[in-house]
């Protein structure tokens, strides 16, 4: 059960520690069902923290996005820990970052928030459109309650949860320094039905499906920027020499961009769905990423973001890996 007081107390204590730089959590946004990341530096800023079905953002991205401003000579870098609040899926991003040495274990303090599932904003906004003021929400007995201006509205989870949450296998953080409340039950198993559905179609149909989607991509790169695994100093897809993809916004470059991005996330994507959530034109990127997640799991029995000691999939092999298609 979510215990907001405990959450705030823990946050206050944590940011009071000498070895903690700041804490990253969630706070209610300025309108509708939006939520913003909240950077808590001082104990009194903890008051604004929330944890609710609206907290979709995967804050792990901020661990690797921290800007390292040039230091003056003799100036010491701030090596204090960053405290981070994580849901189950978010925690897998942290683990994967550890696997890839994007962060050090000592440099983070992980506060686990077992999660009963977060909303798909699109579904909710469809239901309750036009909400100029901030609307809060909470879990209650398997339902989600929205505190709308005209009173509380209870909605069954199935109607508003994000797809990833409906089949979530890891609602409880897989790595923590502190767990805020008792663990929740795993919801369902994931058989990759969404992927299988598309696989069942003909190649032609699949091409048309993606052609339609990719052609609307405006190449804003939000999907990459939000991704907790896409933290290369200098992404190859931005580079001009060599230019893997051209800047032109057309089906050829857009497709190449998405294929390259998806491929780079093979065995690394932890299916947090952030890319799809932020895509302004609604491209179902999870459907793309999850194809590789499925293959990686089926072919190599590898699930990213679970074991910090595991070797990255892309830098390992087994001599007896399957190779039925090779001539």
């Amino acid at each position: 059960m979510v215990d907001l007081e405990k959450l705030k107390n823990v946050a206050r204590e944590t940011v009071s520690r000498d070895d903690v730089k700041y804490l990253i959590g969630w706070r209610q946004g300025t309108y509708g069902f939006r939520v913003s990341p909240h950077f808590v530096k001082e104990p009194d800023e903890a008051e604004k923290l929330i944890f609710s079905p609206l907290c979709t953002n995967n804050l792990a991205t901020y661990l690797v996005l921290t800007e390292r401003l040039p230091l003056l000579r003799g100036e010491q870098p701030d090596s204090r820990k960053v405290a981070l609040m994580v849901k189950g899926c978010d925690s897998r991003a942290v683990v994967q970052q550890l696997i890839e040495q994007g962060i050090n274990r000592e440099s983070v303090f992980i506060i686990g928030c077992p999660c009963e599932g977060v909303i798909d904003l699109k579904k909710v906004e469809e239901k309750f459109s036009n909400q100029p003021g901030p609307v809060q929400a909470r879990w209650s007995n398997g339902k989600i309650v929205f505190h709308l201006p005209d009173g509380d509205k209870e909605v069954p989870k199935g109607e508003v949860l994000a797809a990833k949450c409906l089949s979530c296998r890891y609602p409880n953080p897989v790595i923590t320094d502190l767990m805020l409340w008792e663990e929740v039950q795993t919801r369902g198993s994931d058989e990759y039905e969404d992927v299988k559905e598309l696989e069942a179609k003909s190649p032609q149909e699949r091409w048309l499906f993606w052609e339609d989607k990719f052609s609307s991509c405006i190449r804003c790169y939000s999907c990459r920027n939000v991704c907790p695994m896409c933290y290369c100093e200098d992404c190859v897809l931005d580079r001009l020499n060599p230019a893997w993809v051209f800047r032109s916004n057309n089906i050829s470059e857009n497709t190449a961009f998405q294929l390259a991005r998806a491929f780079h996330l093979a065995g690394r994507c932890i299916e947090c769905g952030e890319c799809e959530r932020v895509c302004p034109v609604g491209i179902p990127l999870t459907k793309l990423n999850r194809k590789l997640a499925k293959e990686v799991k089926e072919k190599y029995e590898y699930i990213p973001g679970l074991d910090p000691e595991s070797k990255p999939l892309q830098s390992s092999y087994r001599p007896d890996d399957k190779e039925d298609f090779i001539l």
Binding site: E100, G102, Y231, C232, E233, K311, P312, Q314, S315
Partner: peptide, 13 residues
């Protein structure tokens, strides 16, 4: 070294 992200993939490979 300016663009390397220190992931160590190459080290393993």
């Amino acid at each position: 070294e300016a663009t390397c992200r220190g992931c160590g993939f190459c080290v393993e490979i």
